[in-house]
Computed example of a mutant assay.
Amino acid sequence: MDHFTRSSLNGFSAHSIDRIHLKRRDEKWIREQLEGSNARFIPLWQSKNLFAEAENPSPVLLSRAHLGESIDLAHSVTLLGEDGDRVYFAVDLPAEEDTPPSSLAELGKFQDLRRMSARLGRRDGALLAYARAIAHWHRRNRFCGDCGSPTAPHQGGHVRICTNPHCRQQHFPRTDPAVIVLVSAGEYCLLGRQTVWPKAMYSAIAGFVEPGESLEDAVVREVMEETGIEVTEVHYRSSQPWPFPSSIMLGFQAKGVKAPLQLNDDELEDARWFTREDMREAFKEGTLRVPTPFSIAYRLIEDWYDAEAATPLRDLSDIVAHIVKG
């Protein structure tokens, strides 16, 4: 399996929307699309997406008529791209209000995307994640980082330009790289847990890449800082957009030296070495949970587990179904 295929299995990663880079510069075309019947708008309020309230919630995508005057209140309206004959826009509504616009509240409920992600199809998840990430960037860049003057959106919302005529600095969307790694040593893999996670939840080791640091250096450093374990090999596996608020998760598998664990920096509440048999028994006892299959963390654990297991991790559904939570 190549990297592209492997990454497409991760949540938020599987939407083939055309981001129409060249059309972003055509302001007349964008204005026409905003008022056209093919436009669909993804509303956000307080960083939440709108979902129809049903047994199987689905994202609410609005026509221009349904959006109505709410578009005039928006902090930002960003062209996302085309998919077939549809043109998609993200609309970030004022987060300062205690309640969303009443006309939209009647259509569904604004809910946290991370909490809803496991119930979404891959296409919907990727589209909503894209909208959430770009809306967050606009909110964080209303003023120029060089001179402090207000910035204004251009190119369909994919650049903000300082309005100070003596500055005119261009600001582009940024993504924060973070590494996540499944470390193994012989028949063991290393999993850790944070205090804020659900009871018994363990996952791969993760952390942000620091300035002037390669991805591989970040893997080695994060594992040492959080667990005291020396990493000897690092292999890239896949990636996943993670718009909470603006990260890209870069997934690795690594080999390390099995040694007693040292929780040095208080990032983790606990960390343990698990064999595959340890994991199966812990699943049965309810003392181990792993992240949802929507996440890259699950895929890294699954890849390692399946490499030498008689029964694939996904086939333990009778055990895993009640313990895999978002």
Score class of each variant (00 low, 15 high):
8 S>Q: 12
8 S>D: 02
10 N>P: 01
11 G>E: 08
14 A>P: 05
16 S>M: 05
17 I>V: 15
17 I>F: 01
18 D>Y: 05
19 R>W: 10
19 R>P: 01
20 I>F: 02
21 H>G: 11
22 L>G: 07
22 L>F: 07
24 R>Q: 15
26 D>F: 10
28 K>R: 15
28 K>F: 11
31 R>I: 11
31 R>K: 14
32 E>L: 14
32 E>D: 15
35 E>T: 14
36 G>P: 02
38 N>C: 07
39 A>R: 06
39 A>G: 04
40 R>F: 00
40 R>G: 00
41 F>K: 10
41 F>D: 09
41 F>S: 00
41 F>N: 07
42 I>L: 13
42 I>R: 08
42 I>T: 11
42 I>Q: 10
42 I>K: 13
43 P>A: 00
43 P>Y: 12
44 L>V: 02
44 L>R: 13
45 W>K: 05
47 S>P: 05
47 S>A: 05
49 N>T: 12
50 L>W: 07
53 E>R: 15
53 E>Q: 15
53 E>P: 04
54 A>E: 15
55 E>F: 01
55 E>G: 06
57 P>K: 10
57 P>T: 14
57 P>S: 06
57 P>E: 05
58 S>E: 08
59 P>K: 05
59 P>V: 04
59 P>N: 00
60 V>E: 13
60 V>R: 12
61 L>N: 06
62 L>R: 14
63 S>K: 10
63 S>G: 12
65 A>W: 00
66 H>W: 04
66 H>M: 15
67 L>I: 11
67 L>M: 14
68 G>S: 09
69 E>Y: 06
71 I>S: 05
71 I>R: 06
71 I>P: 07
72 D>W: 05
73 L>H: 10
73 L>C: 03
73 L>Y: 03
74 A>D: 09
74 A>T: 05
76 S>H: 02
77 V>M: 07
81 G>Q: 02
81 G>H: 04
81 G>M: 10
82 E>G: 01
82 E>P: 01
83 D>L: 15
84 G>R: 04
85 D>K: 07
85 D>Y: 04
85 D>H: 12
85 D>T: 03
86 R>N: 03
87 V>R: 00
88 Y>T: 02
91 V>P: 08
92 D>N: 09
92 D>H: 08
93 L>D: 06
94 P>E: 04
95 A>P: 01
96 E>W: 00
98 D>C: 04
99 T>F: 09
99 T>R: 08
100 P>D: 06
102 S>Y: 03
103 S>C: 09
103 S>V: 07
104 L>D: 12
105 A>H: 08
106 E>Y: 03
107 L>G: 12
107 L>H: 12
107 L>P: 12
110 F>C: 10
110 F>G: 06
111 Q>E: 15
111 Q>Y: 03
111 Q>M: 15
112 D>E: 14
114 R>C: 00
115 R>K: 11
117 S>D: 11
119 R>G: 02
121 G>E: 15
121 G>V: 03
121 G>Y: 05
122 R>V: 07
123 R>V: 11
124 D>V: 02
124 D>I: 04
124 D>K: 00
126 A>G: 13
